[in-house]
């Protein structure tokens, strides 16, 4: 899947990964994909909850070498 924008949320703790994800999505167009990389283990459930409540699609949620990688498609 093509990634249109990346957000480095490494080292940030709750609720910053969510707040910055929201901000990053704001200037994207519907259908575009945002890649978020986080080191906060709490962000796994938070990103899913963010997607459920905002209607943006969490296309994938994976872990790579202690980092959490999310692909979020803008509604």
């Amino acid at each position: 899947m093509n990634v249109d924008k990346e957000l480095d949320a490494r080292g940030l703790n709750c609720p910053l990964p969510i707040l910055k994800t929201k901000k990053s999505l704001a200037d994207m167009t519907p259908g575009q994909v945002l890649k978020v990389v986080s080191t906060d283990p709490g962000s796994i459930k938070d990103m899913q909850a963010f997607a459920n409540q905002t209607g943006n699609a969490l296309v994938s949620s994976t872990e790579e070498k202690g980092e959490y990688v999310f692909l979020m498609q803008k509604k």
Binding site: P15, T21, T54
Partner: peptide
């Protein structure tokens, strides 16, 4: 502040 900012981000 955490709950207010997060809730706002959730719409």
């Amino acid at each position: 502040f955490i709950l207010a900012s997060t809730a706002a981000a959730l719409g």
